[in-house]
Amino acid sequence: MPVRLLPYWRLFLAGVHEQSTYRLAMLGGLVANATFGFLKVAMLFATVRAAGGTLRGYDIGSMSAYIWLSQGLLGSVNLNGVSDFAERIKTGDVAVDFSRPVSPQGAAVARDVGKAVAALGPRGVPSVAIGVLVVGMTMPTTAWPYLLGVPSLAVGITLSAALVYALATAGFWLIETRGVQVLYMVVSGFFAGLFVPIALFPGWLAAMASATPFPSMMMSPIDILTGRVTVARSSALLGIQVVWLAATVTAGLVLTRAGRRTLEVQGG
């Protein structure tokens, strides 16, 4: 690995380690995931059944796969907009980040992605296990969905970390960022397809969703992994994800630079 990237790798590992120390929090998160999961099962299964067994390409098995994958990703895809970096701006600790020879953006994102990956084990796997063992769900039997799904998941997780970082930079200009964070929380969950899959949205609303980066964080990886979309469509979705990631990282870079200038002018 190039020496230049080494600090970020270390931060990633620190994130992994940090997350795995909060065992009880993990358990709590799992209880929450499962509880919401069963409530989603009740409502969405009833909806599919009321539609006669299939609804917009979903049957009971694939709806179950959507539910338990989305619940399993909750610990890894940041849909609440809360971040350590926002807190560091608020407390002024960000000055320390700027004094280090690594990019604050790279550092924050590497660490958050580390935490997200660490959460896949204790939160993702049990959620999917509940889906498979308790409820029953269908997963694809061919290789393509997994070959494309894993990178898609990686991009989705990184995108959410990068987006939350960019969101946190609002703190350079606003005294109180809770409003922005709440707005993100509400809109991101809805458009990422957390409670209702986007395929069930009426056309105009689905179009609105696809104009945002949020489906790329959760809905697209799930659609690809569950084999709900074709290989061609999967590749296209992955492409869209990468474009959103590039755009978000660039926005984060620009905002960090501007924020740094603001900080220097105001003297923190």
Binding site: Y22, L24, A25, L27, G28, G29, V31, A32, N33, A34, T35, F36, L39
Partner: peptide, 19 residues
Amino acid sequence: FLVNGAEMTNAFVYGGRYA
């Protein structure tokens, strides 16, 4: 009783609202 246990209770407080 719980350190970092807020997510556990949220399952029932906010899960309860959803329910």
